[in-house]
Design a protein around this nucleic acid. Structure first.
Length: 587
RNA sequence: GGGCGUGUAGCACAGCUGGAUAAUGCACCGGCCUCCUAAGCCGGAGAUCGCGGGUUCGAAUCCUGCCACGCCCGCCA
């Protein structure tokens, strides 16, 4: 309704002025109506009461009479102290025909680098870790929908202790050794035999077990320590052995994400910033800062307390032995990212809040900007926190398989005449979409408890609900093409609206009119769940339109209805792509 | 102990840059398939917005105190 507001605002300022009220922040006060029954925009008149010495209700009524007429305005009324403005549906139609949902002010094209997921390549995704990927990828998609130029980036942790442990285990332990270590634990699900993220993680887990108990632990610890140290000094051979260890695992993880429609444009390895000298140079610069401090053993830190950080104020960036820490490399990484020419957005778990703050403050201390960060809370299970070690975990691979299976059961029941291949295609689309939607529809900062029954819901409020509305539009399109002729031909005929607009029609027009506002809000505030909710509204509105407006009856097409249905269809399709839902045409 | 976040119907969740009758879904009750896919549509019932104080014409929203839960407070990543 930004387009309506741009028109109405000056008219209201004028009307107010004619009543003797000047210089009020109308821009801020004029807002989308909370009571949708009352109109599209509302202006509370309470603040004018004192100045005019009139009751707000009366002011609103008077004001309504003073607002000049305009083709965009359907109705102006004063109710309960609010000035309500209703858009003229015919005007909305004209706007949509001319500009689509974008309105006459197209969005600016911004360049953005979004880093998300960046999970250590040491095991399969579980539902908890996947929240980052789904949130990040949805952000990527929504920015693209908005018209921004996005790079989706995965920062690969290729040099920490975790990778070293994995590399050590793969080199020193046989399959028998591994299984001997893991006797009490659940075996690999046979479905994932051969998938490296599921298989190699056993080596990692076995090594962890040995490191904790075995009498040889100290010796192993020493070897691993040497490897870590070598990697941090940029030892090419060690880094190569690390990569050989983790790469297949990473690929397994990425194939899981791929099934969810999540892809990356670029992978950047942490080790690069060590081997190219950036980290060394960075530490030198940090050492020259006035807030630099040094510990007894030569370790160095910044005193961020001097810059207002509360709690633990010392931020260590260099160990006593001179090597860098994870956060140090992260700073170097961010400095490089800023050279790529775009805004930076990171998606991080809430456990990284402090670290992100330290990195951000340090970047500012160096004269750089801090990135925008979207934090999310962890997903837990009804039984408590997810933990691979305790076996309290839901793997994304298992969830997707189960989701597909459940979806297939529903399709088989609802469409008994479909062939198995078609059922499988639909079930895959429905299953993966439902999983994504279930996670993206809640605000990121909200703690989230994963429940199978919620993830596998295919009713209203879920992805399939949106998908279903879309298939209705597709189905109509197909029927028109079969029974009447090519869509373009039909639409090039008469698409003039009739006089009477039914409720369902108006409902759909109003939702389409705010579509671009919703995209913009979700993108600018980094809150994809707002867009998810809007898509539910849109699907619901299409269903209302579908109920009230028959496009095809007795072989006759209503051109206007068809035009609107086609517009809604393409908006739904784009919106679904923005959320990573698969826009199938039949279900 | 300190920092950050969360607390809204039986369950889940939106609204939080202050504004009308707190939105939505599940579950519950009732209605709609000789009519473009009923994974749908229509109606009903259900809420001391964690608790107390404050600011305001007006507070779920802002301030403050308390309570509960989560995350963090490594020379780990």
């Amino acid at each position: 309704m930004q387009m309506l507001k741009r028109i109405v605002q000056p008219l209201i300022i004028e009307a107010l002025s004619s009543m003797g009220v000047e210089q009020m922040p109308v821009e801020k006060m004029l807002q989308p109506s909370r009571e949708l029954d009352q109109g599209d925009l509302a202006l509370p008149c309470f603040p004018f009461a004192k100045r005019l010495g009139m009751a707000p209700a009366e002011i609103a009524e008077q004001l309504a009479k003073h607002v000049a007429e305009h083709p965009a305005i359907g109705e102006v009324s004063g109710v309960n102290g609010y000035l309500n403005i209703r858009a003229n549906p015919v005007w909305i139609v004209e706007q949509l025909m001319e500009f689509g949902t974008q309105g006459s002010h197209p969005s600016p094209n911004r360049s953005v680098l979004i880093e998300h997921t960046s999970a250590n390549p040491n095991g399969p995704f579980h539902v908890g870790r996947a929240r980052n990927a789904i949130l990040g990828d949805t952000l990527v998609r929504l920015h693209r929908l908005f018209g921004n130029d996005v790079t989706a980036e995965y920062y690969v942790d290729d040099m920490g202790k975790q990778v070293a442990v994995l590399a050590w285990a793969l080199e020193h332990l046989s399959a028998e050794d591994v299984e001997a270590q893991l006797v009490g634990r659940e075996p690999v699900n046979p479905s994932w035999k051969g998938k490296a993220d599921h298989e190699r993680v056993r080596w990692y887990q076995a090594a962890q077990a040995i490191r904790q108990g075995d009498e040889s632990a100290d010796e192993i610890e020493k070897i691993i320590g040497t490897m870590v140290h070598a990697s941090e000094n940029g030892d090419e051979a060690v880094l190569a052995s690390f990569q050989a260890a983790y790469q297949p695992v990473l690929e397994g993880m990425l194939s899981t994400l791929g099934r969810l429609g999540i892809h990356f444009d670029r992978f950047t390895k942490e080790s690069i910033f060590v081997t190219n000298g950036d980290v060394g140079r960075l530490m030198e610069r940090l050492g020259n800062l006035e807030i630099n401090g040094e510990a007894d053993n030569g370790a160095q830190y910044l005193d961020l307390g001097a810059r207002g950080l509360k709690g633990k104020t010392e931020f260590f960036y260099r160990r006593g032995d001179g090597s860098s820490l994870y956060a140090t490399r992260d700073i170097a990484y961010h400095m490089w990212k800023w050279t790529q020419g775009g805004d930076l957005i990171n998606v991080l778990g809430e456990d990284h809040k402090l670290q992100a703050k330290q990195v951000g403050m340090t970047l500012e201390e160096l004269g750089e900007q801090r990135p925008e960060v979207v934090f999310y809370s962890f997903i837990k299970l009804p039984e408590g926190k997810m933990s691979t070690r305790r076996g309290n975990v839901v793997f994304m691979d298992d969830l997707l398989e189960e989701a597909k299976e459940q979806a297939a059961v529903v399709v088989r029941e609802l469409r008994p005449h479909y062939e198995e291949e078609k059922i499988s295609t639909i079930a895959e689309a429905v299953g993966t979409s439902a999983v994504r939607f279930n996670i993206i529809k809640v605000s990121p900062e909200k703690g989230f408890t994963f429940r199978w029954e919620d993830a596998l819901t295919f009713e209203a409020g879920s992805a399939p609900f949106i998908m279903y509305s879309h298939t209705r539009a597709c189905s109509i399109r197909k029927r028109v093409e079969n029974e009447v002729g090519p869509i373009e031909t039909v639409l090039s005929g008469n698409t003039e609206p009739e006089d009477n607009f039914s409720d369902g029609l108006i409902t759909l027009l109003r939702v389409l009119a705010v579509h671009q506002d919703r995209v913009e809000k979700a993108v600018n505030d980094h809150r994809p769940h707002l867009f998810a909710e809007h898509m539910l509204h849109l699907a619901n509105a299409y269903n209302a339109f579908y109920r009230d407006c028959h496009i095809l009856s007795d072989g006759e097409v209503n051109g206007f209805y068809l035009w609107l249905s086609e517009l809604a269809r393409s908006i739904m399709k784009d919106g679904m792509e923005g959320l990573g839902l698969v826009a199938i045409e039949e279900m």
